[in-house]
């Protein structure tokens, strides 16, 4: 590992801003000190399966909570290492092309391609009735969040708060 690389990584690790997409409606969240704050889940993109949960909205940014699910937000790192939503972002995480390359000795081969990038959004009435047997509409609450892949295929129900 060259010193230069290690320094580059260290600089990158110290980055204090991130972009993400709102992956849930805003909700009130009680922090460890017992205070209620507005928060939401944030999808950081990049083909990651997990979303950042319960990201609080920074002070004086209350208008952010009116943003719709799916909109881009910018996150800032707080002193403790936790992230907070500090505003809306002009960029939006989008699709990811994944290309898998296999290496055998001196030979490489592209062994597969995949389109990644999940979308988390509320399920519609129709989807609740059709996508998730045997429950369906009437059993599942309206507003339930579902995760869809980049092609729009339903993947799973996202845990609701």
């Amino acid at each position: 590992m060259s010193i230069r690389k290690i320094i580059d990584w260290a600089i990158q690790d110290q980055k204090s801003e991130m972009k993400g997409n709102i992956a849930s409606p805003f909700y009130q969240y009680q922090d460890y000190a017992g205070s209620w704050v507005w928060a939401c889940d944030v999808d950081l993109g990049g083909g990651e399966d997990n979303v950042l949960r319960s990201v609080p909205v920074a002070a004086n940014n209350r208008e952010v909570i009116y943003a719709e699910q799916g909109k881009g937000v910018s996150l800032s790192r707080m002193g403790s290492g936790k992230w907070a939503i500090t505003g809306l972002s002009k960029t939006l995480n989008s699709t990811v092309h994944m290309i898998f390359v296999s290496f055998v000795d001196d030979v490489f081969q592209i062994s597969g391609r995949r389109l990644a990038g999940n979308i988390i959004r509320p399920l519609s009435y129709g989807e609740m009735g059709e996508l998730i047997p045997p429950f369906g509409y009437g059993v599942l609450p309206y507003g339930l969040q579902g995760k869809f892949d980049a092609q729009g295929n339903f993947m799973e129900i996202v845990e609701w708060h």
């Binding site: 972009k19 993109g45 990049g46 083909g47 909109k71 881009g72 972002s89 002009k90 960029t91 939006l92 995480n93 989008s94 699709t95 990811v96 092309h97 994944m98 290309i99 898998f100 390359v101 296999s102 290496f103 062994s111 597969g112 990644a116």
Partner: peptide, 14 residues
Amino acid sequence: YAYLEKMSIAMEDG
């Protein structure tokens, strides 16, 4: 309107 941040990832298979 927002810019879409797109990504291409090439990685070793498996």
